[in-house]
């Protein structure tokens, strides 16, 4: 009787493994697809982020890159050196 229980357990666990293998391969496929999508979108966003792309896009609005550097005004406490 005990042996039969063990046999059933063994068969069941073999089936679970098989199911997991199939699931892994499905997830792997999904992962690859998502990766492909991610890279395609990231590539697009990186090109959009380039300064020359932005400059071209805002030209019509009359905007252009600053000629002078940005000024940071930092308030310092006179008591701390």
């Amino acid at each position: 009787m005990f042996v039969i229980v063990l046999l059933i357990l063994m068969i069941r666990s073999a089936h679970i493994t098989d199911e997991k293998v199939i699931k892994i391969s499905q997830l792997k496929k999904q992962e690859n697809e998502l990766r492909a999508e991610y890279i395609a979108l990231r590539s697009k966003s990186m090109i959009l982020k380039l300064e020359t792309t932005v400059v071209e896009k805002v030209k019509e609005m009359g905007l252009h890159p600053a000629d002078k550097p940005p000024q940071i005004i930092r308030e310092v406490d006179p008591n701390t050196p």
Partner: peptide, 18 residues
């Protein structure tokens, strides 16, 4: 060079309350 110049912020320190 100009691009680097224009993109590098200059820091002006002002004393508090001055």
């Amino acid at each position: 060079a100009h691009k680097i110049y224009a993109a590098t912020p200059t820091v002006n320190k002002v004393k508090k309350g001055s």
